[in-house]
Design a protein around this nucleic acid. Structure first.
Lengths: 339, 339
DNA sequence: TTGAAAGCGCTACCAT
DNA sequence: ATGGTAGCGCTTTCAA
């Protein structure tokens, strides 16, 4: 183990005051070139590392932000986190990841005790107390929330991935390909108001096809958006005996599950039925067939989240940002009647 | 914004010394029930949160650990991180995720400045300086490294997922099923010494089948372990004209690619050829056919990593741990000659 | 069993 | 343009 030298040691070796050493490092006031050089030289000789803990104690800034999510195993979420992290490190911020299993209050307390500068919370609105979230603001911890959380406090920054627009893109595309009977596998039922895909699907079917009661299969509690749930829901769809030439799924994993079952039941994709997912996870490129889907721009989303946080931490500015998804067309869709 | 009360405020309200307040919270010396109650009551009334930054300044412990990886988009890696995080929060530790893009030294400096208690580094040995890693030890930051990194300093904890044993399980299983001609699609060529699957495959073929020169197709720079590379390598295998009744792939994605090409070339899986992957990613359950593979126990691995770190931070004990993978048998494999 | 007080390393205000 | 120094909130030794 090596002795950690402090700002005082550097000051002595450089023959300057401790204040000057500080100012050389944090550039908060001008220091002559001569003294700057002396300090830098001394610091290098001593292998000096500034102590962020000590500086945090006075500045009340830790340059640390938190990300609270339900589940780290969601690849989409991970891409968002990756974007946050990349943007953060460029500005000298570290990212604490927190994935809860119902004990979110532990994290909230920690956020306060640890003086995080900001937090992005992306857990289900039903699983966390509104007042717990807002408590963070009382302790000067900046907040970015998803717009779908529907917490409209003027002190919170909001980020929105516009899935309504995205769903419109999907249906418009399918309609242009000649599809009329389009079914939807929804991971949620109608009671989950935070989900905008479902109402958007209905609206889009009305707008582009004049269809007022499209075929929709709803997921049940506990709502799952997994390969498995895709299988289950598509089986329910097949059981109804209703036909469709295109199928939209709440996310890519469900689409994979649906494709598996459809394939095993003798349907050819896309000849007999076109399938569309949402998310554009890595695997979409390589599934068989590759999956037409909605790109969530997750990295971009992550960067936008950090920018909101940063701008609030540094300038105290609150803002909202909206990211538009993008339709990525691959092999799981084809014009109607092509089979 | 709310005023943050300090230990001093609590002490005054409770009519005790500040030291007593500290001891009530950190339980490092006995405090009478009476005073304890007074303190707790006062703390609750003031909505007091201990300031971890201040306490870190004196104790030199931040209860914060770092995880440095190449890439946050790897689902397998994410499962490991998830395991680390879950184990960490139970002991009151937070996890900083860091994913580098060649600027690893920035992270190393930050680890030191931020006084992280420990770090797990899982980046390619070629991409990070050995001395940068070991420097952390000089600053009392505990280390867990993958055994494959081959850094044998007595101060570093090592974790090992035994893929050699795993490969043995695969070959033993296939041999017992009557397979003799087993080919291997390796994502790396023989120059990559950190990969233990390749030598393990050769050793296993010798041990279980007395075979000294099994059929192996090698990936080339830039080494890829994707569905695409699986397709390319299996095509090379078919081009050689050599026959085999079973095929082992470096990972699941490559196995998916290989299955796709084999299927398109008229082979039935598993009747004509058995296929085995490695990793057990979510999709293996739902591929067509579902894939026999090696489960990496990623969550368990993550927990083991935290345990190593924790035991070093708290007790100063260095250890090594080995996690065994587990063979998961599904529909892509069958006894030889079953077709 | 409890209290007083000296630091931990840095920042930033007040001087000069 | 630079220095001196009080104080950030907590821990922990020393004393009682």
């Amino acid at each position: 183990m090596v002795t950690r030298f402090t700002r005082k040691d550097v000051a002595e070796l450089a023959g300057v005051s401790t204040a000057t050493v500080s100012y050389v490092f944090n550039k908060k006031r001008y220091v002559s070139q001569e003294l700057t050089n002396k300090v830098l030289f001394a610091a290098k000789r001593l292998n000096y590392y500034p102590d962020m803990i000590a500086s945090s104690l006075t500045t009340k800034k830790t340059h640390n932000i938190g990300v609270l999510v339900n589940d780290l195993s969601n690849p989409l979420q991970n891409a968002v986190i990756s974007g946050i992290q990349r943007a953060a490190i460029k500005k000298g911020y570290f990212v604490n990841i927190c994935a809860g299993e119902s004990n979110f209050d532990v994290y909230i307390d920690n956020f306060i005790s640890r003086h995080l500068d900001g937090v992005y919370i992306a857990v289900q609105a039903t699983e966390i107390q509104r007042e717990d979230i807002l408590k963070l603001l009382d302790y000067n911890i900046k907040l970015v929330l998803n717009k779908t959380m529907n917490i409209n406090d003027p002190r919170v920054n909001q980020i929105h991935l516009d899935l309504t627009a995205g769903m419109m893109m999907i249906i418009e595309y399918l309609a242009k390909q000649g599809h009329k009977d389009i079914a939807y596998l929804s991971c949620y039922d109608e009671s989950v108001l935070s989900d905008e895909r479902l109402p958007a699907f209905k609206a889009a079917m009305r707008k582009y096809l004049g269809c007022n009661d499209p075929v929709i299969v709803y997921g049940k509690v506990p709502y799952e958006s997994t390969i498995e749930s895709g299988k289950i829901l598509v089986e329910q769809l097949l059981d109804t005996g209703k036909t469709c030439s295109a199928l939209v799924c709440s996310n890519d994993l469900m689409a994979f599950g649906a494709m598996k079952v459809l394939h095993d039941s003798g349907y050819r994709i896309p000849e007999d039925i076109s399938v569309v997912g949402i998310d554009n996870i890595e695997l979409c490129k390589s599934s068989i067939p590759s999956l037409t889907t909605l790109d969530q721009k997750s990295e971009e989303l992550g960067m936008a989240i950090f920018d909101l946080l940063y701008n609030d931490i540094v300038n105290g500015e609150i803002a909202q940002k909206c990211i538009w998804p993008q339709l990525v067309i691959r092999d799981s869709t084809a014009p109607y009647g092509k089979g």
